[in-house]
Nucleic acid binder design. Structure first.
Lengths: 155, 155
DNA sequence: GCCATTTGGTTTTATGATGCAACCACACAA
DNA sequence: TTGTGTGGTTGCATCATAAAACCAAATGGC
């Protein structure tokens, strides 16, 4: 079996995340879901993707506990796809991707939207990494430590 | 042409990021590069991936300005792949992916490592979103605004 | 209640991407 | 100069993706 390699058993949490949302469409589906999109056709219209792969992705996201199907909300007999807490938890990932693009994109003038603080209408600050005590950390000021009571493949 | 859809012209900064690092391996290559990996063979050993696709990914990352080739560092005639500032700028994305996994993974005991503050050895705090004035923001307290002087596709 | 249309998919088929193994050129070492 | 490790490329088999056709159930119009 040649199969596209899976990171499911991998001990690295980054690889594990990518297992669930590392393909081309999943994060964009989640993005739409965060904007309130719930119906199959609505995802299909907004994203312009083939219906078969949309169906496959939705199924995969449900399997990974990121979306769940709800029996309706407007009385219709159709079902809806809504984010679970795990799904809503991807928000910082999307913000990080967005900010990276805003900061480093070669043609920033092509970017259509800004993420702003709703109250003031001002751009959100860059995500920053802080220590437990609140000290601002650079990548170099961090390091990886093996987890307590766990002896597995490195990362 | 059926071509795997490209997000290159898309106006959404998230799609634009995914264009550069949305495949299975790119972020893992960057992860290794952040740990100091520079040589082809070293990437290949650590990631256990096929050499042809490693070569393709490295080329793509160089094309996107995330890595650049440097003529050596230990006197050898071989070349090295080093992160550009744009490449190092992906750090928050990796941290966000890591924290998502730490918080929501179904089998957290399989995760081998923790990201810690090097000085104190304590886990890094969760990334948080703040307004310009420092107020902590929830996703619901943010919204998207069209960029000044730019009129393109939505989302 | 009946028919046309919309919604939410599945199936089929073509093509691109991935994975593995074999191969090869160059650097370096003896 | 012969050998070995590094850094790839090439071919081939298989998998994933994309587009379009198809289809059943739900809905809307009358």
């Amino acid at each position: 079996m040649v199969k596209r390699t899976s990171f499911e058993g991998d001990a690295c949490p980054i690889a594990r995340s990518l297992e669930a949302l590392g393909d081309w469409w999943s994060l964009l589906i989640i993005r739409e879901a965060l904007f309130g999109v719930r119906r199959f056709g609505e995802f299909q219209n907004k994203l312009g993707m083939a219906k078969n792969i949309l169906a496959a992705r939705l199924r995969s996201l449900v399997d990974h506990g990121i979306l769940e199907t709800a029996p309706a909300s407007d009385g219709s007999a159709y079902q809806e796809y809504v984010l679970t807490p795990k799904g809503r938890g991807t928000f910082p990932i999307l913000v990080a991707l967005r900010q990276w693009s805003e900061e480093f994109d070669d043609r920033p003038e092509e970017i259509a939207t800004m993420l702003v603080d709703r109250e003031k209408g001002r751009p959100v600050k860059k995500l920053e990494m802080r220590a437990e005590d609140g000290r601002l950390l650079t990548p170099a000021e961090t390091t990886l430590k093996p987890r307590p009571s766990s002896r597995r493949r490195s990362a």
